[in-house]
Amino acid sequence: MAHEHHGHDHPHPFQPDHPEPTSYYELLGMALNELLIEKGVYTAGDMRAMIEQLEAVSPETHGAKVVARAWVDPDFKAALLRDGAAAVSSLGLDPGYTELTALENTPRLHNVVVCTLCSCYPRSLLGRPPAWYKSASYRSRLVREPRKVLAEFGTTVPDDVEVRVHDSTAELRYVVVPMRPEGTEGWSEEDLATLVTRDSMIGVARAKATR
């Protein structure tokens, strides 16, 4: 355990601590981790380096670059939609360890991604998934009532647009290419990238409007 908690004879800080793990499986996971370190399978330093590596990836610095390039370069967009991993690699970015599929939103089609079984996520482009992406609520409701869930994210999809839910259950990873916002003609790739949010690449939101 991170620290021991002896009774309540000391004042608590106003802001609560990150909750200690309480469930059987959370404790089991911690115990296993400590045991693997104790047995020398890996070190605490290895563990820290892995976490730092995961946290060095962000939607702004990785995924948004891919989308902005697709917006300005039709050949790149075609390549991205054909073979996501190869196109991402051509930008010097890591496509991840499995098939990567880019899903293009159009005026007729709105794509949105979920992993109902766990939390499959294109980490090499978007970093660590947000807590809600892993929640039982999002995972169970997005496949059942996608339009309602999207509306709760502030994304109302007209009835004449197809909503297509992608359940990432096995070996593929998905990233949504949102529609390029109107009024961005002539924008630089760098400026366009600032409009591409994490949520727009999961598909629960559109890219940022220009005003």
Binding site: E145, R147, D159, E162, R164, V165, H166, A170
Partner: peptide, 14 residues
Amino acid sequence: YNGPAHDTLEIEIF
């Protein structure tokens, strides 16, 4: 299902 008939879902199946 409470939405248009053209709404779809795609999933990976072995």
